[in-house]
Amino acid sequence: MENILEARNINKHFKKPVLFHVLKDISFSVKEGEFASIMGKSGCGKSTLLYVLSTMDTDYEGQLFLHGELVSGQPADKLAYIRNKHIGFVFQFHYLLAEFTVLENVMLPARKLAERSYEEIEQKAMEKLQILGIDKLALKKASQISGGEKQRVAIARALINDPVIIMGDEPTGNLDSHNSENVFNIFRELSDEQGLSLLIVTHDQDFADKTDRIIQMEDGRILA
């Protein structure tokens, strides 16, 4: 199977408040259709790694490949395009634009990509909401729905441009076990049926156990 995401010898330092080697020589890859999870103690550098992998953080050494193409060192606008088209990101806290409707939130990345007409994007966003079982909320303001619903809206938004990989930073961290299970099932389905790759940071052992692979982190390193 082809490598979707590959990290080679990634190192990162925080210079403030003191010099701190946060990511130490990280190399690993995620294959097409693979559902991988990252586990590790609080403060070991999981979130920091995810920001690097998602191209939002460019302040690191080493190489990052997406679809076999080198991403490191690309100009900011190119990285924004890569995030927009190829990577879906789900945060621990449901990051939605509060004044926009659920539907508008889901549509935004596709409207930025501008590969489809407004009507097509709208229809596609409705499909994604349907997959996640929240199509009834489409016209509600994002600030007026529950936490679990918000998390699913964020997932729908991550899916809108049909990315090759979804990254999540504790996407179930804020959810009760029922909602957490729900989100896991959605991920599982996307991976099995659409061949989507997933890389999910989690503290939930049960969640991790059900994924294809667990990547263990300790002190900025990946344990074999």
């Binding site: 998602s54 939002m56 900011a76 606008d77 924004a80 395009y81 890569i82 995030r83 927009n84 088209k85 990101f89 945060f91 990051y95 939605l96 634009l97 509060a98 935004l108 990345p109 930025k112 990509l113 938004r157």
Partner: peptide, 16 residues
Amino acid sequence: MNDIAILKATGFTGRD
């Protein structure tokens, strides 16, 4: 600030 971070995380450029 949050909106700006989300927009950038989902692929909007600084210029956007």
